[in-house]
Design a protein around this nucleic acid. Structure first.
Lengths: 171, 171
DNA sequence: TCAACATCGTTGATTCATCAACTATTCCGA
DNA sequence: TCGGAATAGTTGATGAATCAACGATGTTGA
């Protein structure tokens, strides 16, 4: 534990960070509420439908899907199980790798997504896109691309450690 | 239900939105993991400690605290209850309004915050502030200030409705 | 070929968040 | 000053996310 002196945030940085934190919390909560109220979908469920709908043959391997959403595999298993009961997806084991499982989008899933998408997009527009200048939106895109890159698959190691070599933990 | 045609996002908007979504998910998860691993605090708990530490007399009314975090009152009650057991805060009923309750930061709470803050700040720096240009960080601040304003403290109305008229803020 | 190891996905227990219902107090208007 | 409405906070039930452990299959290298 090297005793480095902490470099605190300056006022501007602090304000930016807090605004982001607060705005994000509100935004996600609102998008989730809209979707729930009007279509009985949570935001994560909606995201799953979107990913599947964009995949070739409307299907994806569980792990791939989990990674693309940044969800743990366990979480995805649980969520997909619920969605399967709701009839939005089905699972089918994968021929070429017998450990593997495909999640498929069902007809009902396609339909539900089609119904929900306009609501979701309208929200994203109203709360985010239309709330700021085009330049700021671009900057947000750049900014979080950078964040994702720092954290991203670049496997961030825990802050304290010296280096990840045989990290047991998750990615 | 007026049958408005949906205005989809264009490619750039779409990319910005997704980058933001993904980056945010990763960022929050990582900050939470760091805090948990090194100090046994969740991000929401940490935020509570911060708010209290900045309040006059290290205390705040439950509702005020809940609002400042954008948490439901119920959620705050539960969280504070756990933190009270952990010895980080105490509750004491308020003299002037007998419905009211103050949450106090304890000595142990102050200490825990002091221990955890450097880790948290280092994370915010490394993953966010230092990952992007100063201009983009500013833009992010502006952007989410705007988002928070649109959604504002005054309960955003459900998407379907025509207009609360006092739209901008019923603050 | 076989043993070690890695990956895929699931499971059940636990923890945390959400929701609806509730008590107690205060506020407000007739 | 009374009664209804609004506000403060809590509670318990339910649902979702996390965590550790696991079985099963695939991969690698001695």
């Amino acid at each position: 534990m090297a005793n480095k002196k902490t470099r605190w945030l300056n006022t501007g940085q602090q304000r930016a960070w807090r605004a982001y934190m607060l705005g994000t919390t509100q935004l996600m909560a609102q998008l989730d509420r809209d979707l729930n109220a009007e279509h009985g979908l949570s935001l994560p469920e909606y995201e799953i439908l979107v990913r599947l709908s964009e995949a070739p043959e409307l299907r994806m391997r569980m792990a791939e899907l989990a990674d693309s959403l940044n969800h743990s595999r366990s979480r995805l298993t649980h969520t997909v199980a619920r969605m399967e009961i709701a009839g939005l997806v089905t699972r089918e084991s994968c021929g070429t790798d017998r450990r593997g499982v495909y999640a498929f989008l069902t007809e009902a899933g396609v339909q539900r997504l089609a119904d929900a998408a306009p609501v979701h997009v309208a929200g994203v527009r109203r709360y985010l896109v239309d709330a700021m200048s085009a330049e700021d939106l671009e900057a947000v895109g750049r900014a979080f691309t950078a964040v994702a890159e720092v954290l991203g698959d670049g496997k961030a190691w825990p802050l304290g450690e010296e280096h990840p070599r045989h990290k047991t933990a998750q990615r």
